[in-house]
Design a protein around this nucleic acid. Structure first.
Length: 919
RNA sequence: GGGCCGUUAGCUCAGCGGGAGAGUGCUUCCCUGACACGGAAGAAGUCACUGGUUCAAAUCCAGUACGGCCCACCA
């Protein structure tokens, strides 16, 4: 805002209803063309503070769902506010290659052509995935435009980009050289359908009904009974374990028992892991197919017998060979029963079963050679950064969940038997030689091709996501973007990926930026405090339907954000999301909510339309408050208050509350009262430039109208700016119409701001408690009279003659014209014959209702009010009579209570006298 | 098995020591100078239960019931 008053465009440009579609595409294109979203690293170098957020990269598979609409709304509103505040902002867009998910999708596609990835071969298959990515990725970017995301398109990244791949390679090499990545044969979670290892958190546990089978091993005095839910694994048993102190088995430890169906004899070992209280206190040990048993096996040097292949088919010799694991289970039980080995029959048993997080197949613990990250030191640092407050969680309760996980984390299995992903940069040569290459380094064995083989596996997709906060900014190079935008400011994401992503980003970022061992130098002279990937983590919940049910395609209650944007507009969808978002809380949405938000958009549209029709314009500076009407001062005071509230709520990530505050200010105060009050001062319609002073029906003079036009424009301008972060399209369109300027995107934020050097800019703060009190009284009086008319069945639109007696001695003295306009009251004329009166705020409104009033209805109402007032008087009197209260309550509370009592007593006498008058 | 959270108007949720709130839905009236995607008025809740702390509890503490979520090497 600079220079002269800007005048409104022709108000006839504004249709009576807001139609989002055209505005949205035009506005978005304008923003991008003007380069308003492009981050400026040089400005940061010159001293401007920065604000950066990296997008939680959506999977290239599929499209954005309503949860993304929530997430993007929150991120975008944070970014837009900071941009208006004067920060150099970066919202970096991008996508995740989502290894297993994407590979599955493309494999499904191939299956429709009756092909498998093996038919294509690795190279051709990966090519095909890239092809598929190109198509799917574009769809997501289009959706982001529709949502209005103010992302810097020039900095778009993909986890398998060349630059990011180099970051991944660099990181792997560093961890490898530091001994924090190792290869080992372990029991891992294996998906027999996806044919790959999974990390612990990629396994989803669900309680399922199973059978607990008790089996007798051995015979006679040496017999021992074990229980299992996975009978087929007994084929791979290599011991029975009991607790060392269990007297029942003391004599058996060290002896051997016969393993049924196999003819093998296996030892009885003593291991403290066994719980003597559970079942018979004896447990079968299958080191190759159970993580606990694997550990027991290690402690007792037991062999591990693998009895299943990678697809879950039994490979053990004998009659069960070739059976699927779930076919083998009953077959083994039947065979045991035939031998009389099943004891006490089988028992139904509810137990937790692990499923592949991607395809739902029951996971099989499998002994295999995999790569792991040693998480100990990394997890410690990740926990400490939150513990010591360098990184703050919102809401803070979520930190407990984070600590639980980070403080007790198993080593992270990072190798995947997939083709789509970052290939592990390790080569195996002759005589067991192993080399991990550095980025750019040639593979070993150039002189002897064929003697070295690269590891066929790729990395867990979350390994590259874990680097996202800095790999996207050019790491490992010391780039201007790294210097300007790392650490990022806020991570906005769902609590459901706290472990998958947040914790991994913390671990890998802290490691990469500060170095954790073996003299690794911190990057770019970064202080340890700055090694964190982000200062704040703002966690949002899941989007649910109106009954709080999780949205899912199978349930049929999933919402396509584009569908809602088409029907209600992007701003309405965004407002719906923001309004429902409490920190860490799930968001319940429904079409009714979206329609309500759409209505709000339309309300704003029309408020602006009315203002523009009445010549609102934004003044270079506010007129002298002394020259303003009380209503003007009231709305300015309320605006200042709401501005401060919204500012504070933004800082606290309280999106729901700040949306609510703006909604109520805009609708209940600005539209419902201020615009109505402004009509008193503004010249009547069809009289755009008012005549001589006093010509208007309410004594409107042109000077007063001019000042009200200023205030009308001033408040609308600030309101649009305050709403812009959440509702960018509508506010931009209206603001351009109001100010004649190009875009509100870079207009100054009405609250706290900074200048180019990062110094705070003082913001205007107009407060007028006296005006607030007067308008509050006015609204109460008007509501009282309206209520009377409504109760009496008098049509709201009908003009009624009335006298306002006693008003001269009240704070409402100057408001008679306003009250008359709001209530459609005409002055008493010659035939004035009041038939009823309403008293409130010290004013008696005598009404000529041109007819008898409904005495019974009026009595009912008065009696009801009297009962309420009497109760209130009673309650407050008792309270004030309580010596404990007067002695211990804070003075302001006592004062408030006294005032309440006085008000209630006044109400009571008033109502009593009116009841008496009625009789 | 461990942990976290919730239980407030029909529904979805705010409020978290001193007057029970919002949106939506519902009832009645109204196309009043922008908006019927609108205006006005209204009905509606022993704030899950029990006990405790306090002058004062929806709000703090303990327990109970119900619901939800997360974690777990539950043979």
């Amino acid at each position: 805002m600079s220079g002269d008053r800007t005048t409104a465009q022709d108000p006839s440009q504004l249709a009576p209803q807001y139609s989002p579609a055209e505005v949205e595409s035009r506005r978005y294109a304008g923003w991008v063309d003007a380069g308003l979203f492009t981050a400026d690293a040089a400005a940061v170098a010159a001293g401007r503070p920065s604000f950066s957020i990296v997008i939680p990269p959506p999977n290239v598979t599929g499209s954005l769902h309503i949860g993304h609409a929530l997430e993007h709304t929150l991120i975008d509103s944070l970014v837009r506010r900071r941009r208006m505040q004067g920060y150099s902002t970066l919202w970096l867009p991008g996508m995740d290659h989502a290894g297993i998910a994407t590979q599955n999708v493309v494999e499904h596609e191939l299956a429709r052509e009756s092909l498998s990835r093996h038919d294509l071969g690795r190279e051709k298959f990966v090519e095909r995935v890239w092809q598929w990515k190109a198509e799917s990725g574009g769809k997501i970017l289009g959706q982001m435009r529709r949502l209005g995301d103010s992302v810097d398109w020039s900095r778009e990244r993909f986890t398998m980009d060349e630059g990011l791949s180099r970051a991944v390679h660099t990181m792997f090499k560093r961890l490898f050289d530091d001994g924090l990545i190792y290869r080992a044969e372990r029991i891992i979670n294996w998906c027999p359908r996806c044919l790959t290892a999974l990390s612990d958190i990629e396994v989803e546990h669900a309680d399922e009904d199973g059978e607990l089978v008790s089996i007798r091993y051995g015979d006679g005095a040496g017999a021992i009974v074990v229980a299992t839910t996975r009978a087929e694994t007994m084929l791979g048993d290599t011991a029975v374990a009991v607790h060392p102190d269990d007297p029942r088995y003391a004599g058996l430890i060290g002896r051997e028992v016969e393993l049924p169906l196999t003819g093998r004899r296996i030892p009885v070992v003593a291991d403290p892991h066994v719980d003597p209280e559970f079942g018979t206190g004896a447990v079968k040990v299958t080191p190759a197919h159970d993580p606990n048993d694997f550990e027991i096996g290690r402690r007792h040097d037991l062999p591990a017998r693998t009895i299943m292949d990678e697809r879950g088919v039994i490979t053990a010799p004998g009659p069960f060979g070739g059976l699927d694991r779930f076919e083998a289970r009953p077959a083994v039980v039947a065979a045991l029963r035939e031998e009389g080995r099943i004891v006490a029959e089988v028992r139904p048993y509810l137990h937790s079963v692990g499923h592949c997080g991607r395809c739902g197949t029951i996971v099989e613990p499998r002994l295999s050679l995999q790569w792991f990250v040693k998480v100990g030191p990394l997890a410690k640092a990740a926990g400490d950064a939150v513990r010591d407050g360098r990184v703050k969680m919102h809401p803070p309760e979520m930190a407990a969940r984070y600590f639980d996980w980070v403080d007790d984390m198993h080593d992270w299995c990072i190798s995947r038997q997939l083709w789509w992903g970052h290939r592990i940069p390790v080569f195996y040569g002759p005589n067991g030689a192993i080399v991990c290459t550095a980025p750019g380094e040639d593979p070993p064995g150039a002189d002897n091709p064929g003697s070295w083989q690269q590891d066929p596996d790729v990395l867990d997709t979350w390994f590259s996501s874990g680097l996202w906060a800095f790999s996207t900014l050019g790491w490992p190079d010391d780039t201007p973007d790294m210097r300007a935008f790392y650490p990022t400011s806020v991570l906005v994401t769902g609590y459901d990926i706290l472990f998958f992503w947040v914790a991994r980003m913390m671990m890998l970022s802290l490691y990469a930026m500060s170095g954790t061992s073996q003299g690794q130098a911190p990057d770019a002279g970064r202080e340890p405090a700055q090694a964190i990937p982000f200062y704040d983590v703002a966690l949002h919940g899941l989007v649910r339907d109106s009954h709080g049910k999780k949205m899912s395609k199978s349930r049929g209650n999933a919402v396509d954000p584009l569908d809602w944007i088409d029907r209600f507009g992007a701003d309405a969808v965004r407002f719906t999301m923001a309004r429902g978002a409490n920190p860490g809380g799930d968001v319940a949405v429904s079409e009714e909510w979206a329609a309500g938000a759409r209505n709000f958009c339309n309300k704003l549209w029309n408020a602006a339309r009315f203002s523009l029709m009445n010549g609102a314009r934004v003044p270079a500076e506010l007129p002298d408050p002394a020259s303003l009407t009380v209503a003007d001062r009231w709305i300015l005071s309320r605006l200042a208050s709401v501005t401060a509230d919204v500012d504070a709520l933004f800082e606290a990530f309280e999106f729901g509350k700040l949306s609510e505050a703006l909604y109520h200010f805009a609708w209940d105060e600005y539209c419902d009262w201020y615009l109505e009050l402004a009509k008193v001062t503004l010249p009547p319609p069809g009289q755009p430039s008012a005549g001589p002073a006093g010509a208007g029906p309410a004594g409107a003079d042109e000077a007063a109208a001019e000042r009200t036009r200023d205030v009308l424009g001033y408040v609308l301008d600030r309101l649009l700016r305050l709403l812009h972060p959440v509702m960018p399209f509508l506010t931009d369109e209206l603001w351009a119409a109001l100010t004649g300027e190009e875009s509100v995107v870079v207009a100054p934020w009405p609250g706290q701001r900074v200048d180019g050097a990062g110094a705070p800019v003082a913001s205007e703060r107009f407060t007028d408690p006296a005006a607030e009190a007067q308008i509050a009284a006015l609204t109460r009086l008007v509501t009282q009279v309206r209520r009377f008319r409504s109760d009496q069945g008098l049509r709201p639109g009908q003009r009624v003659a009335a006298a306002l007696t006693g008003i001269a001695n009240t704070p409402l003295a100057g408001h008679e014209a306003s009250i008359r306009t709001l209530l459609r009251l005409t002055p008493p004329d010659d035939g004035f014959a009041p038939t009823a009166s309403v008293q409130a705020e010290g004013v008696t409104v005598e009404l000529d209702t041109s007819g008898a009033i409904d005495v019974a209805a009026e009595r009912r109402r008065l009696e009801k009010d009297l009962a309420a007032a009497t109760e209130e008087v009673d309650r407050t009197q008792r309270k004030l009579a309580n010596p404990g209260f007067t002695a211990k309550a804070p003075p302001e509370v006592i004062e408030k209570t006294r005032q309440r009592l006085a008000a209630a007593e006044a109400d009571m006498t008033l109502l009593q006298s009116r009841l008496a008058a009625l009789a």
